[in-house]
Amino acid sequence: MILETPPLNTVQDLGRPGYRNLGVGSSGVMDPLALEVGNILLGNARGDACIELQTYPFSIRFDATTSFAITGIDAEITLDGMKILPWSVETAGAGQVLRVGPPTWGARGYVCVAGGIDVPGVLGSRSTQLRGAFGGLDGRPLEAGDTLATGASTRHLSGYGALPPTVAVGDEYDEGEPRTVNLRAIPATDYALFTPDSQQRFWHTPWRITPQSNRVGYRLAGESLRLHHAVELRSYGIVPGIVQVPPAGEPIVQLADANTAGGYPRIATVIEADLWRLAQARIGTRIRFHECTHQQGVAAMQPVAAYLDDLRMMVAHYQKSARCRSGAKAGEKA
């Protein structure tokens, strides 16, 4: 039962692939890495759904014993007033209240529960499609008083966690600019239509994320980018990460709730391995784009995959030893 939620918090999973050809965007969590970590920690299926938080404070009361993990952010998180850590597994008893305060790091928090959030799948996903008003909980953001069911799970575990990806995967372009998020991007279809000046400016500007930024996309502010001459493009497919430049010259990075097609010139695409960094960048943050090749973009997924593999192994070991311990205890009692 949700006790307290500001607007724009929704049920999401890894998204709704396969319907772009009908105009249905992917939706899904903005930070897929955080959801993957949460689901691995809880022994869930990879595609299980969670609550994506974008606004705070958020609090829920558990109506049954439930193991959970909060991932994605650093924040003051309490269970019945007792402080708990993000990126770790805890078990709440019936009646206990979980409260997530505003993040001290990051923007989007994920409330992951054992068994996943159970809402009806629509077109193969539990993600909320806000524009289409379907999926998630009745196709809308969560409200105080809503009740969400969880999938079946017999696991009641606690006391272990994951290294946050900022520590485990790191940031190879960190040049000591504390509030700057570094993103690798590959030049896209219309890169050559921009003036050489604008191409250089794209890579060297510390772009500021404006308040007109949300799950659809981030609008960036900086010195505007110019084309050699104006173009009227035919509509083409869009995937999250694509950086478009509307006539005013300030880029937009299209994200999880983007339209499936658009017509603005495309200067670059943020690589998949870095999209989670963007999801956690708050309004007002500066971002820098670093040019990379296809091969570098593919290679960048390796540390992310290794991080998740290590975590899967760690959790499997932990759960095995936890089973051994509880087995031994049962034996002693007999």
Binding site: Y236, V239, I271, G297, V298
Partner: peptide, 13 residues
């Protein structure tokens, strides 16, 4: 015209 959109999408025009 054929171009990559990120690492996992390709556009044919």
């Amino acid at each position: 015209a054929i171009s990559m959109i990120g690492t996992r999408a390709m556009l044919f025009e």
